[in-house]
Simulated scan of single mutants.
Amino acid sequence: MVKVKICGLRRLEDIEYVNALMVDYAGFVFAESKRKVNLNQAKRLAERLDRRIKKVGVFVNEGRDFIEKVKSHLGLDVIQFHGDEKPEDVAGYDVEVWKAIRVSDVKSLKEAEKYPVQKILLDSPGRTNKDVAYGGTGVPFDWSILDDLKVRFPVVLAGGLNPDNVVDAIMKVKPYAVDVSSGVETNGFKDFDKMKKFVERVRVL
C-alpha cells in the first residue's frame, strides 16, 4: 500500500485530523514558509501526535546543530532535506534521511544517485522567473519524465498532488509514498474533508 505524508502541520486541529485519518507520516516545516513552525510549536504538536505516525522534520539549507536539536526535542523519525544541500550535508544522521529533488528534466533525476539517503522525494521545480520555491507550490511537474526512472531509492512523490490527481499520479509513477500539503488546504489551512478524500483515494489502490 502506498504510504501517505501530510506536510505543513501547524495547528492542533491539524494533528487531530492526521490522528483521525492515521496517515503514515506527519511533516513539520522548519524553513521559511507560511507553514513554518518553531521548535516550541512543533513540540506541542508532536506531543499530541499518535505515536504510530512517523514525525518528519523538513529543513532547507539548515545547519547541522539546529537539525540535531530539533531531532532530539521532537524525536524525529525522518529528516527531510528540501534545499540545495550537497551529498555530504545529508550524511551522518542516525535517523532516516530523505532528500528532495526538484524535477525539471532527466538530468535532475540523476542527481538523486549522489545522495547517501534512504528515500528520494521528487518535487516540482517551483521556479517563478528567478525565484526558487522550495516545495509547497501546489504545482505538479511532468510525471512523464519519470517513465524510465530507475533509482536505487524508494520514491516519495510530491508537487501539486490533490484528491483529484493522486490516483493518476500513483498509477503513473508507482511511488513508495505520496506527500501533500497545499492540495488538502482551503484558504491556506488544512481541510479535513480534503485530507480524508485524499487518504481514501490512496488507500483503495
Rank of each mutant, 00 (worst) to 15 (best):
V156S: 01
P116I: 03
I170R: 13
V97T: 09
S72I: 06
K172C: 00
D168K: 12
G159V: 05
A133N: 08
K114P: 04
D164Q: 14
S181A: 15
E113K: 10
K71Q: 14
D77Y: 03
G159I: 00
E85W: 04
V139P: 01
P140D: 00
D142A: 07
V106N: 10
L121M: 14
D89V: 05
N162Y: 06
V90D: 04
K130D: 09
A177S: 14
D131C: 03
F141Y: 02
P125G: 06
P116A: 11
A100C: 07
H82K: 04
V155Q: 08
A158H: 04
A100R: 03
H73Q: 15
D84R: 14
F141P: 01
V184M: 08
L146F: 07
A177E: 06
D147C: 04
R152F: 12
V173K: 01
K86Y: 08
P163T: 13
K110T: 10
R152V: 15
A112R: 03
I145A: 07
F153W: 06
L76W: 00
I101S: 11
P163R: 07
R102L: 07
E113F: 12
D148I: 00
K99N: 05
D147A: 13
A158F: 03
P116E: 12
P87H: 09
V155W: 00
S144D: 11
V78R: 02
K172Q: 14
G126C: 04
D123W: 01
F189K: 15
K130G: 12
F141S: 08
Y115H: 07
I120Q: 06
L76H: 00
E85R: 08
D164R: 06
Y115S: 07
D123H: 03
D105P: 09
Y93E: 04
V90Q: 11
V178N: 10
L122W: 05
K71F: 05
D94R: 12
F141A: 02
N162C: 15
D142E: 10
H82Q: 05
Q118H: 12
V166R: 03
D131H: 06
D94T: 13
Y134G: 01
I170M: 13
H82R: 11
N187H: 14
S124T: 12
R127D: 10
S182P: 15
K71D: 10
L122Q: 07
H73V: 13
E96T: 09
V178M: 08
D142P: 00
V106C: 07
S124Q: 01
S182T: 15
W98E: 11
L157I: 09
H73M: 13
E185N: 14
H73D: 12
V132N: 10
L76K: 03
K172P: 08
S72K: 13
T186Q: 15
K99Q: 14
D77A: 08
D123Q: 04
S144F: 00
E111S: 03
Y176K: 12
G126L: 07
V90K: 02
L157R: 01
L121I: 09
N187G: 13
F141R: 00
V155P: 05
S72L: 08
K71I: 02
K69S: 06
G138V: 05
D168R: 06
K71Y: 02
P116Y: 11
